[in-house]
Simulated assay, not measured.
Amino acid sequence: MNVYSPNLELARMVLDSQPFSMYLGARLTAFGDGGATLELDIRDELRQQNGFVHGGVLSYAADNALTFAAGTVVGPAVLTAGYSIDYLRPARGEVLRAHAQVVRPGRTRVVCRCDLFTVDSEGNQTLCAVAQGTIAVAETALPEPVE
């Protein structure tokens, strides 16, 4: 029986300890019940040459959301084992939202899926990519972030 209890504030501290996440301005807006939602504001530096959000930014958001979702059921000692992403349409809008949900929690691996949306200024969501990932449960606790 799993005794881990998800904590949004602790999860936000973990996200805030990632320099790249801070650069992107990523924030966790939901964490618990087998799911996690990560958001970031879309700004010009995150776009590719055609004005769409760069695929690497969508990939980052999927990777982190998948891992945080897994962490809601097995705790913080998790690492991405692998994931795939399918880009469905160009990402444009005000906010990128990645919502991941656990599909199957296991003892050593957690399978999750993620839907990535762009949100416009009126709050309308458009699905732009989907991802699926396998998250490894680390055998030992991960080291504390260095401040």
Rank of each mutant, 00 (worst) to 15 (best):
M1T: 11
R113K: 08
A26K: 08
L15G: 13
V111R: 10
E122G: 11
E39D: 04
V73W: 11
T118D: 03
A11L: 03
Y83I: 05
V102R: 10
V73I: 10
G93C: 01
V95N: 01
N124T: 12
E94G: 04
P76K: 11
A98E: 02
L58S: 12
I135F: 04
G51E: 01
Y4F: 15
A138I: 02
A136Q: 12
A131I: 03
G51P: 04
V119R: 11
M22Y: 08
V103G: 03
G106C: 09
A136T: 03
T118C: 06
A131S: 10
L8Y: 00
T134F: 09
D16Y: 10
Q125N: 14
V110S: 00
D63Y: 06
H99T: 11
D33G: 09
G34K: 08
Q132L: 00
D44G: 00
R113N: 03
V74S: 09
A98V: 06
V110L: 04
C112P: 01
F20L: 15
V110D: 01
Y87F: 10
F52E: 08
D44R: 08
N7S: 11
R109W: 12
R47V: 04
C128H: 03
V130Q: 14
S21Q: 13
T134Q: 15
A129G: 12
P19K: 10
A138H: 04
E147N: 13
R92K: 03
Y4S: 02
E94A: 15
F20H: 15
A77K: 09
A26L: 14
H54T: 00
A30E: 14
E45S: 10
C128G: 00
G75E: 07
R43T: 12
G34P: 01
V14W: 13
Q18L: 15
V130M: 10
P6Y: 05
P145E: 14
T118N: 02
G123H: 05
G75I: 08
N2K: 09
G25R: 07
D120F: 14
M22I: 14
F68Y: 11
C114E: 01
L88H: 00
A129K: 06
P6Q: 04
V14S: 08
S5F: 09
A36Q: 12
L58I: 10
N64S: 15
R89D: 02
F31C: 03
L88Q: 00
V14R: 11
A30T: 03
M1D: 14
S21M: 09
T29L: 05
P90Y: 03
P90I: 01
L40H: 09
L38Y: 08
H99V: 07
P6H: 01
G106A: 06
E139P: 03
A98H: 04
Q48N: 14
G75S: 06
V110I: 09
F68Q: 02
V103S: 02
L79G: 10
E139I: 06
Y23R: 15
A138M: 09
I42F: 03
H54A: 14
N64P: 05
H99M: 01
G71A: 15
V78N: 03
P19Q: 07
T126D: 13
A61R: 09
C114Y: 05
G55F: 02
R97V: 07
F20N: 14
L46D: 01
M13W: 11
T80K: 07
Y4H: 15
C112Q: 00
A61S: 12
A100W: 00
V74G: 06
E139Q: 12
Y4T: 06
G75H: 02
S17W: 07
R97Y: 00
R97N: 01
G71P: 05
F52A: 15
L38N: 06
V146H: 15
D41C: 09
